[in-house]
Design a protein around this nucleic acid. Structure first.
Lengths: 155, 155
DNA sequence: TTATATCAGTTTCAAATGACAACCAAATGA
DNA sequence: TCATTTGGTTGTCATTTGAAACTGATATAA
């Protein structure tokens, strides 16, 4: 990333942390169980200098944690923190969009499924805090408690 | 983006189209109702050459459509296509993550709410095709119909 | 024991991309 | 009519990227 966004917006701020395409491939692999430097490197194809840089940032930002494994400290495991794991819905939403709008029905290289049934999931759903589904047309984005200035918001 | 990812993965492929932080701010503004070149430029702060480039790509990729408004073609409106609107869950997931993990409860500059009740939504939910919620622990990512090679997949 | 491979990076350097400013022509608006 | 807005293009310079070579430990194999 070249310059962090100053906007007081959760989207802009999240992009400051994970607004890089390599970062997402790294996070994807982490969800797939990869933990080691070389694992990320080989499975994503990222250059090692970039991987070192991205992992360092991700650790600083609290998305990954770096653990010393092996006895004398030259082997490390990188794992998602709770904050990192919380990115799962974003990743799943991306995956579902890619399946639908790039590959199309029947051509999906990966599917998100329910282990119990083995069947693919429906698109992520908007729900109220009481668990009731909220139709897309009822969505709105409004200023929150921490708002300073006023973006024009209509969903 | 410098070089498109070759992975046969919906996440990697979607990142080829929208793996850029400016692109997401442009899309965010589009959901907020912005349609004009200058609107995007002023509200995001992106340089004009980059905006021109990003909009052109987004139109080529079918995420935006460019309409000629005004009579002789120097005024345009950029709007999300259906494919573009389908990115909403990704954006909402990003927004919710930013609220929770960057701003924290009570400090959210923006909130996603249900128009009907005015109350903030819960995090996006995984649901089966029959509408039943799927707990996060039952999620798995597996090879789909279009899979060629085999990534190790565990959610 | 010695050799070989793996791990987790760092360094180097050319090429691509980014940010910023200046410029521009057509079309509006006052 | 004249200034302003719109939607860019062009040029310059700084930063980032990607690829490869290099390091210096540790683990594994013969």
């Amino acid at each position: 990333m070249t310059k962090p966004h100053q906007h007081d917006c959760p989207v802009a701020q999240m992009l400051n942390l994970v607004g890089d395409h390599w970062t997402w491939l790294i996070i994807r692999e982490a969800f797939f169980g990869v933990t080691r430097f070389n694992g990320f490197q080989q499975r994503t194809g990222i250059a090692k200098n970039l991987l070192a840089d991205r992992l360092e940032r991700l650790v600083l930002d609290g998305i990954f944690e770096k653990k010393d494994i092996g006895q004398k400290g030259t082997r490390y495991a990188y794992g998602l923190t709770a904050k990192g794991k919380a990115l799962q819905p974003v990743l799943i939403a991306m995956l579902q969009w890619g399946n639908t709008h790039i590959y199309g029905k029947g051509n999906e290289p990966l599917q998100v499924v329910d282990k119990k049934t083995g069947r693919p999931l429906a698109p992520l759903q908007y729900v109220a805090t009481d668990g009731r589904p909220v139709p897309r047309s009822d969505l709105a984005i409004v200023k929150g408690a921490g708002a300073q200035r006023s973006p024009q918001t209509q969903a």
